[in-house]
Write a protein that binds this DNA or RNA. Structure first.
Lengths: 63, 63
DNA sequence: CGATAAAGTCAAGCAACATTGACAAAGTGA
DNA sequence: TCACTTTGTCAATGTTGCTTGACTTTATCG
């Protein structure tokens, strides 16, 4: 499971901390998801998709 | 997080056990997800979406 | 009614997700 | 160079997802 978080974040010039705040999760969680340590839960994936205005499938990709 | 699993399953006349087998998870997991005990992981949500040929957003809905 | 399948549920255990707090490494800019 | 921000990472801890095994309840059908 890969994801485009880093790019989407860069497009908006957000730090991991900024994104974490908007998602209401810890900065470490954002970092862990971006660096592929683990996948987000489904509810968090929905919050991410909502925040970026994209379908989940456009952000998370099976590797 | 609600889901349309029960309906999608009924449309195909599958038992919870049938669905569990196709998803390669336990029957109890399917039951727990259907009855709202917990949400599936993101990878499992993808397998479910693939199986039914639908976007994740068409199967799982924020409540 | 009686048999079988399907669905629901519980407990115990393990794996995965997410947290806080801390610290080091790398990047940014005055 | 020096200060500051950002990113990466670790440990410890708590919560959630998923498992097996067992059991009860509900539906289906001869």
């Amino acid at each position: 499971m890969k994801n485009r978080l880093k790019v989407l974040r860069a497009e908006r010039d957000w730090s991991q901390g900024d994104l974490a705040e908007r998602l209401e999760v810890s900065r470490q969680s954002v970092n862990a998801i971006e660096t592929g340590k683990y996948d987000p839960s489904l509810p968090l994936a929905f919050r991410i998709a909502d925040l970026f205005g994209l379908p989940i499938e456009d952000i998370f990709l099976k590797d």
